[in-house]
Design a protein around this nucleic acid. Structure first.
Length: 816
RNA sequence: GCCCGGAUGGCGGAAUUGGUAGACGCAAGGGACUUAAAAUCCCUCGCUCAUUACGAGCGUGCCGGUUCAAUUCCGGCUUCGGGCACCA
């Protein structure tokens, strides 16, 4: 057969499409598999990363379909977001037009790869219907107290009149206009993900087997749970007086209560309320005020880089155990968001405190002794050890001291054991146009109220001016003016739109529901209960934290709101590696991209898919190699060519294995090894590269034998195994040879693995010296005798002290 | 700095619970077919020394250990990649 991928691929894509081959069944009594590759952002054209992502997911989906599962393998578009607005500014197009044109183009590109998507369930997150349900979910969350408004510091560009995401700030300057970025207090909406911090941590146990360990550990670090003591520092009389008795005490948090006797000062974050009071009442000299204001101006990122800085505030607190007076400082390294925005400082046993104390000449007291190293005044000792200089708690191990000191505080009501998390609530407000409007209304009478459900969706206006300055929704002449749903007076609509991670946090639930039900609900309960969780999720490692954590959070929230019974969205996660060329990531700016379209045009989709699955295991980085692509093409051509050796059958031919010549026996063994491999690969790690190698070996082995029946059997099976990887050619060949009857579960014929003769390695002291062929049922004694005979020359003048026999593997002779 | 993950030929990569290192492919070299080229097919291909021999030695980042046997397990390094980054 002459291999003509262009013709074959078009033919089968059309056939699959017209016959709805890949649509899931709504019969929920069947066993299901939900296979999902992360949906793409419609940036314009697909790239090799997409090809890899979708080839992996597609292979898995096709495999399960062939094994008889009801498979959901959907696709959609993560279609809100900034690039559409940037394109609008640059090309004077409308974001909507740009986005939906890109979707149309990319849909065709994905189509040309022959991906087995459930096309009837496709949607874009910018579709008003999606927005409608999403805004409803938002309101449910708001009503449950999971959404709140607060003001916090964000990156603000004065020239562009907009908030910038952290990644849009380069060297402290705006990425577009080079203006210095400021920190500006902005009101915004926050989702209370911190309320689920512990649940997110606890449920990671269920993901241990299905998720890569590094993703779990990244999430664990991100959530950042720590246990410690929270207690109050009471201000001394003079200080309270100085603060007009507005403050009596403040709270600090420590994970090292065992070092509490080493406290020599306390430090407040520049944003701490006590400092506000000091400034407002002119209790600090002007240069100090100026310095504090400067500290506050520095963004979180730059603050982490900055030198330690601070100054004494002229107030003191009382050490809760010693009663000693301790000076209070302001320090730029203390974060207002964490642990009350204040710390007890133990310079002897904390590096930051030490650095600060050294710079400002503050006193240092050692309270822990570690036998390996003694405090020498040059650096802090942060290890655990034994308490010294610690009053009644002296002489305890760190862990004992922790326990007893916490117990002491709790007994006297001076403090308590608490758990803190680094995880912060999720700010979802964006001052942009191309996003889902936050469905809230500011009413002069009722305050902040959600839009009425029957008025959803709050849709975006189409007639907007997008010039990169300010929020187009704010500038729109009429859009924001509305009526309060409660008191019916004139009110103002919220002009913030949602972070696009909001859309991608529940799209996988929407897919579970037949499109005929999309009008009424976000997703159908029975459908989501049937399809959830996603059995295999496939996507880039770059989403290890944010997207995957948000999606986990949403799933729990939606469960608690009664929408689903799933607690975790993704049972198994495969994070695919990047596609590289010349050692670095393919990117337009580096000019090292390979266009998938041109590869498909030149070699066909099957070749592209085969190469990308063969070149590396899915989780690893993949180095693009043009000549290896040609190698993949050659293999498919060879496969197609060998169909001449095959006669048309409908079932596996009956073969008397014992009567075959050795070459044919070997070929059958190779074929069934490949089938076995296929079963392993799809249930354990998806090493498609080894599966493809096994198929190549099998085809090679078939090629050196001539038995017609063995050829037909081998081909029948090989097409079955390869269908998930190179579907077009397999359907074409299977159609002409087997009437597609071979795309089903095939039993392994164990007889082909029974061999009369086994080859054993003979090693001496573990070093291979010979190979022997022995009858399968040969006795140990016979085998050792034969092995010694074969290795006679190595045994001269040696004393044999031990003989080891590993069945089917080797014989080891230990000599001295 | 902390956390995680790697390191195997010229290259991408294979190797059940420790049991014949280098499968499969790419590149390279040689040959067949052809007027020629392409395509296809066959052979060689870890390194070193030998080339009388189906020869020997060395080899999975480095050093050491456990074992009859280590790419695999343990301890200590080197190095590359990724993530987090003053979270008290």
């Amino acid at each position: 057969m002459v291999y003509n991928p262009r013709e074959i691929e078009k033919k089968w894509q059309k056939y699959w499409d017209e016959n709805g081959i890949f649509e899931p069944s709504n019969d929920f009594s069947k066993e299901k598999k939900y296979i999902l590759s992360m949906f793409p952002y419609p940036s314009g054209k697909i790239h090799m990363g997409h090809v890899r992502n979708y080839s992996i997911g597609d292979a898995i989906a096709r495999n399960y379909r062939k094994l008889g599962f009801n498979v959901l393998h959907p696709i959609g578009w993560d279609s809100f977001g900034m690039p559409a607005e940037n394109a609008a500014i640059k090309n004077k197009t409308h974001p909507k037009k740009w986005t939906y044109e890109n979707i149309d183009y990319m849909r065709n590109e994905l189509n040309s790869l022959g991906l087995s998507f459930a096309k009837t369930r496709e949607f874009a997150t910018s579709d008003p219907l999606y927005t409608k349900h999403e805004q409803n979910l938002f309101i449910q969350m708001y009503n449950k107290g999971l959404v709140y408004q607060k003001s916090s510091k964000l990156n603000w560009c004065d020239t562009c009149q907009t908030v910038l995401a952290n990644e849009q700030v380069e060297d402290g300057k705006c990425w577009r206009c080079d203006n210095l970025v400021q920190q500006r207090e902005m009101p915004g909406y926050y989702l209370k993900i911190t309320a689920y911090a512990q649940a997110l941590l606890d449920d990671m146990k269920e993901l241990k087997n299905g998720w890569p360990s590094q993703v779990l550990s990244m999430q664990e670090n991100w959530i950042g749970r720590s246990e410690g003591l929270e207690f109050d520092f009471t201000l001394d009389e003079d200080s309270q007086e100085k603060l007009n008795h507005k403050f009596e005490k403040y709270t600090v948090f420590t994970t090292r209560p065992d070092t509490i006797y080493g406290v020599t000062y306390s430090a407040l974050a520049p944003e701490h309320p006590i400092i506000n009071h000091l400034i407002e009442h002119n209790l600090l000299d002007p240069s100090s005020v100026e310095k504090i204001k400067q500290m506050r101006q520095v963004g979180a990122r730059d603050r982490a880089m900055a030198q330690k800085e601070g100054l004494a505030l002229g107030i003191n607190v009382i050490h809760p155990l010693t009663g000693k007076k301790i000076p209070v400082w302001v320090a730029n390294f203390v974060l207002i968001e964490y642990g009350g925005g204040a710390v007890m400082a133990v310079p002897a046993h904390d590096e930051r405190d030490f650095e600060f104390a050294s710079k400002y000449g503050l006193s240092i007291t050692q309270s822990i002794s570690v036998n390996t190293k003694e405090f020498d005044g040059n650096c802090a000792i942060c290890d655990y050890g034994v308490t010294i200089n610690s009053g009644v708690f002296t002489g305890l191990s760190s862990s004992q001291a922790k326990e007893q000191i916490i117990a002491h505080f709790e007994k006297y009501g001076k403090g308590k054991k608490v758990i803190n998390y680094k995880l912060r609530d999720w700010g979802i407000s964006r001052q942009r146009y191309w996003g889902a409007p936050i469905p809230m209304i500011h009413c002069p009478n009722c305050g902040l109220v959600p839009e009425a459900i029957e008025n959803l969706p709050v849709a975006l206006p189409e007639d907007v001016v997008i010039d990169g300055e300010g929020n187009p929704l704010v500038k729109h002449p009429t859009w924001k003016h509305t009526i309060c749903p409660t008191c019916k007076t004139q009110a103002i609509r919220e002009t913030d739109t949602m972070d696009t991670f909001f859309q991608s946090s529940w799209y996988f639930l929407r897919y579970t529901t037949d499109a005929s039900l999309w009008q009424e609900s976000a997703f159908d309960r029975a459908s989501s209960d049937y399809w959830m969780s996603v059995d295999q999720y496939v996507g880039g490692i770059e989403h290890a934290i944010l997207h995957l954590l948000y999606a986990r959070f949403f799933t729990k929230v939606l469960r608690d709101l009664g929408y689903t019974n799933a607690s975790e969205p993704f049972e198994n996660l495969l994070t695919q590696g990047m596609v590289l060329k010349d050692g670095s990531k393919m990117s337009k700016s580096k000019g090292n991209t390979v266009d998938p379209d041109s590869i498909i045009k030149q070699f066909g989709a099957d070749t592209a898919r085969l190469f990308i699955l063969f070149a590396a295991p899915p989780a690893k980085e993949l180095e693009w190699n043009d000549s290896a692509v040609e190698g993949a093409f050659r293999f498919i051509k060879r496969l197609a060519d060998r169909s001449n050796n095959v006669s048309k059958v409908h079932t596996l031919p009956q073969i008397d294995h014992t009567k075959l010549p050795d070459t044919s026996k070997y070929a059958r063994k190779k074929v069934y090894e490949a089938l076995k491999k296929s079963q392993e690969v799809f249930t354990n790690g998806y090493a498609f590269n080894t599966l493809i190698a096994a198929c190549m070996e099998a085809l090679n082995a078939l090629g050196v034998q001539e038995d017609k029946a063995v050829w037909s059997e081998g081909y029948f099976i090989l097409l079955n195994i390869l269908e998930p990887i190179i579907p077009h050619i397999c359907w074409e060949l299977s159609d002409s040879l087997f009437d597609l009857k071979n795309f089903t579960k095939i039993q392994i014929q164990e007889e082909v693995f029974d061999e009369a003769v086994v080859v054993l390695a003979v090693t001496i002291n573990g070093k291979k010296r010979a190979e022997i062929s022995v009858a399968k049922d040969a006795s140990k004694e016979q085998i050792f005798a034969y092995a010694k005979e074969e290795c006679a020359k190595w045994l001269v003048d040696q004393t044999l002290i031990k003989e080891i026999f590993v069945p089917n593997k080797l014989v080891n002779l230990v000599v001295k």
